[in-house]
Amino acid sequence: MSMVYDTEHPVPIPPIIWDNMGYWEGINRHELVFQRCKECGTWRHPPRPVCPKCRSFEKEWTPSTGKGAVYSWVTYQESPHPGFKAPYSVVLLEMEEGVRLVSNMVDIKPEEISIGMPVEVVFEDIAEGLTLPKFRKVG
């Protein structure tokens, strides 16, 4: 079971600004990329203008392996937005690069999700101009 959308109510489209532009450009071409400091190589997500370790403003968008594990998850029994049909689950993932991100799972029932479950990225084209990275159980 994956997230069910009510197409009558468009879901929020992420606002793009300078700091997160590279991330969403990557998603649009079905590539999961994260910010990485050019100086010291530290990965970071969500995107930020400067490296919190070495304070360099130089950064590059580096492809992720797309693999990680569930770190935490919740199930919405009531939907906060008419575009999302409840119940649905939201997961917090820890990627191999060490960064975390929020997403949804595909092809899985909420009660089958567990902390530590290995996952990999898939890309879902939700609407015109909106592609999201989602995750599928592996192994």
């Binding site: 879901v11 929020p12 992420p14 606002p15 935490s72 919740v74 997403s103 902390i115």
Partner: peptide, 23 residues
């Protein structure tokens, strides 16, 4: 919130807190 949480339906304070509580 709007860039990295809302598009996934993660939109209420209840949900935001629940994620931490689950862990």
């Amino acid at each position: 919130q709007w860039t990295f949480h809302a598009p996934f339906g993660h939109m209420s304070n209840a949900g935001r807190v629940a994620m931490i509580v689950r862990r």
